[in-house]
Design a protein around this nucleic acid. Structure first.
Length: 492
RNA sequence: GCCCCUGUAGCUCAGUCGGUUAGAGCGGCGGCCUUUUAAGCCGCGCGUCGCGGGUUCGAAUCCCGCCGGGGGCACCA
């Protein structure tokens, strides 16, 4: 695709465009000039003439640039739709204003070409703001046809593999990625305003940790050693809390070697933040505040339509313990079945040898409870087996102080009162080693330098992980993670 | 990894109980048109019917395999 010679059979459409390019060059016009300075965003032009009455022609001059997305010819005059990153503007090209030659060249352009133009603002008799052109210049020739101007681009594969075409064709895609950008920007701003310090920790790690997941492995040639792509930032960030950064966050990508689904992508954007002297009740309060304020700033409301239902992010979110939630949805009281065998019997299944009691509880949660959690909900207090980095519950035996937040049937965040007792942490790692021997490929490897950091003394701390892609999914009302990832993982 | 669906023009799609030269709209090319906006009118089809094999007088259509995509299951955040 990189060399023209690799395209032996150009379709006529492509050939026509190349021939046009040749003719433009032959006539002495540079089809790829270096700049077009002094232009305004189309949105600024629109703002300057808001409410202009139909039929009025002004003498207000404007210089704009963008892609030609539609053309409606009328002989010696013609309408073109120009689009830049800020919006769309109609251009009115008239032969008497441009001169015969410039007009003919302009009309001869292809949809998709990028031009810079100059002219005066007017409102047509239908009231459409337009620019009556007296000068124009080709800024970049387009050699491939744009997607259908009416149907847009609908083929899922092309939309994801050639996202640039999707963005050219589909306003909804452009909206989703603007919401995504604004969401990330407002989250940063919220954390910065609450005195959190943003940091960057290693993506390439000698040892992975901080979540239950399988990692990607890579190799460092000069050091001749294998490294892992991080599955979480948790352990490094807690070492920074030990170091005295009382409020710390990192916003970046994690990598997990798992399948792809409407809510999973092998690389995804995660926010983790830690607050010294806080517990999981404080982090729950902060999350509902953060999300509702971000929604308000990005969307102007805390309410989002998601299919038929309306989700409201306004606090307080519902809080229910994991035990109550499972009892409510599955009719099983996990506290009355404290062993693996008893719980499996209550569920009416045979326990898989690799599944402990905690895994069975986790299965009940994801199958029976999670799909029904549409409005924002905190599920509280998890089995210790599933949470090697969470502190034991202050009053409930066998549980830890942990919550997960769910919206639209999807988990969007996870938090706990962080375990800061180094000896207990060591025992949890040993438990993980036993899970690993039993065949659990997501069990955590022992991390001595992390335990040593805890031995240095970490204050009581509350920590949160928030899945940014999933949050954006909820804020945009989309059904698949792939809609909010510019370039989602694809086969090959 | 398993199951189901799917792949036709640059784009959106029709055509599939096997049968002339594979169709439409948009886009493109040529012509008319100075306030249109999916502009309009007249003319022109621009194609490896995903790829490879098979059955058949004859395959876009039936069979087998492969590749890509979607959905579901499993698994994970």
């Amino acid at each position: 695709m990189s060399e023209p010679t690799e395209q032996p059979k150009l379709s006529d459409v492509l050939r026509d465009r190349r021939e046009k390019l040749d003719r433009i060059r032959d006539s002495g016009i540079e089809p790829f000039p270096h700049e077009f300075s002094g232009r305004e965003d189309i949105a600024e032009v629109r703002a300057a003439h808001e409410g202009l009455v139909a039929g009025i022609e002004t003498e207000s001059r404007h210089r704009v640039a963008g892609r030609i997305v539609a053309r409606r010819g009328h002989g010696k005059a013609c309408f073109l739709d120009l689009r830049d990153g800020s919006g769309r503007l109609q251009l009115h090209a008239r032969e008497d204003l441009l001169g015969e030659e410039a007009y003919a060249l302009l009309v001869n352009l292809d949809l998709g070409d990028i031009v810079g133009v100059e002219g005066t603002a007017l409102a047509t008799r239908r009231g459409e703001l337009s620019l009556a052109l007296d000068r124009w210049r080709l800024l970049a020739k387009s050699l491939r046809p744009p997607p259908d101007k009416f149907h847009g681009l609908e083929d899922t594969e092309t939309r994801f593999r050639r996202r640039e075409l999707d963005l050219i064709a589909n306003e909804e895609s452009r909206r989703i990625f603007r919401v995504r950008a604004a969401t990330i920007s407002e989250i940063r701003r919220w954390l910065d305003e609450h005195a959190y310090v943003e940091v960057e920790t290693p993506v390439l790690q000698p040892l992975y940790g901080g979540a239950l997941a399988r990692p990607f492995t890579t190799h460092h040639n000069a050091l001749d050693r294998d490294l892992y792509l991080r599955i979480a930032t948790e352990l490094y960030l807690k070492r920074l809390v030990v170091g005295g950064i009382d409020r710390v966050y990192e916003l970046g990508k994690d990598f997990r070697n798992e399948g792809v689904s409407h809510k999973h992508n092998p690389e995804f954007t995660m926010l983790e933040w830690y607050e010294a002297y806080a517990d999981y009740e404080k982090t729950a309060h902060d999350l509902e505040l953060l999300v509702s304020e971000v929604a308000e700033r990005v969307l102007g409301t805390t309410k989002v339509k998601r299919g038929e239902v309306e989700i409201d992010f306004a606090p307080p979110w519902r809080r229910i313990t994991l035990r109550e939630a499972i009892l409510e949805r599955a009719g099983i009281d996990i506290a009355e079945h404290p062993s693996r065998e008893a719980l499996a019997k209550a569920m009416g299944t045979e326990p898989d040898p690799t599944e402990g009691w905690g895994k069975l509880v986790d299965g009940l949660l994801s199958r029976e409870v999670e799909p029904g959690l549409i409005q924002p909900t905190f599920i509280l207090d998890y089995p210790v087996e599933l949470s090697p980095f969470a502190k034991a519950h202050r009053s409930e035996e066998g549980l830890v102080e942990r919550w997960e937040a769910f919206v639209g049937g999807v988990e969007i965040a996870n938090s706990f009162s962080e375990l800061n007792d180094p000896d207990e942490q060591r025992r949890r790692f040993e438990q993980q080693a036993r899970e690993s021997e039993r065949g659990d490929e997501e069990a955590q490897p022992y991390d001595e330098s992390f335990v040593e950091a805890l031995e240095q003394g970490m204050p009581p701390t509350g920590g949160v992980g928030l899945g940014i892609d999933r949050l954006v999914m909820m804020l945009t009302g989309t059904a698949s993670l792939r809609e909010v990832l510019l370039f989602p993982a694809m086969k090959t």
